[in-house]
């Protein structure tokens, strides 16, 4: 029971031993109008992103941008150095010998795209983040082994310590616990 004297909680964590139960309860919670929530699972769970209605990641666009940047850097670097900075006449062949620039351009395209894919994923996920309130949930260390968690956060406008707890229990959570901030 949240009274003004108790420290504000981060939210309520429901836990499950089956990923199917988790997805089902996430759907129910969405239907009940909860929006500020996140699920924590030991592996990617099929259907969970859809149940939480997560928008499609914009990472692919970033990776495309990274690839194009790498490609332009590759073409630019090789053209500028072989035409302007260090022109070398080999048997009268053209200085802009683009077919021989293909391998390096290709490698730089891949390199920059891959760096954006990894860096973008880490950055957009807000990592590294050494501490997060969800780690206060009792038994959360099993979230990286065999336990599936759903945390409805106290910032949700529909959050009410008692009602939300009752909702999660009736929906089929095996355990519901307060998460200290």
């Amino acid at each position: 029971m949240a009274t003004p004297s108790t420290p504000p909680t981060y939210g309520l964590a429901a836990s499950f031993s089956s990923p199917d139960d988790l997805v089902r309860v996430v759907r129910l919670a969405r239907a009940a109008g909860y929006r500020q929530m996140d699920a924590y699972t030991p592996m990617p769970v099929h259907g969970l992103a859809e149940a939480l209605d997560l928008p499609p990641s914009r990472l692919p666009w970033g990776v495309l941008g990274g690839g194009i940047t790498g490609m332009l850097v590759g073409i630019g670097l090789q053209s500028y150095t072989t035409i302007v900075l260090y022109p070398m006449n080999v048997g009268g062949r053209p200085l802009f010998s683009w077919p021989s620039f293909v391998p390096v351009t290709f490698e730089l395209t891949i390199l920059c795209a891959a760096l954006v894919a990894v860096g973008g994923m880490i950055w957009r996920n807000g990592l590294p983040e050494p501490h997060h309130p969800i780690f206060n949930a009792p038994g959360f260390e099993r979230a990286s082994t065999d336990r599936f968690f759903l945390c409805i956060e106290a910032t949700d406008p529909r959050f009410d310590a008692a009602a939300t707890r009752r909702f999660l229990e009736t929906a089929g959570a095996e355990e519901v616990q307060d998460v200290a901030r």
């Binding site: 924590y40 699972t41 990617p44 992103a49 997560l54 990641s57 990894v118 997060h132 990286s144």
Partner: peptide, 22 residues
């Protein structure tokens, strides 16, 4: 500080697949 968040997994799987494609 990985915590297995569904939001993280979502982006993680996208990144992993893109890396595989690259």
């Amino acid at each position: 500080g990985w915590r297995g968040s569904a939001k993280h997994w979502h982006r993680y799987e996208t990144a992993y697949l893109l890396l595989a494609g690259l």
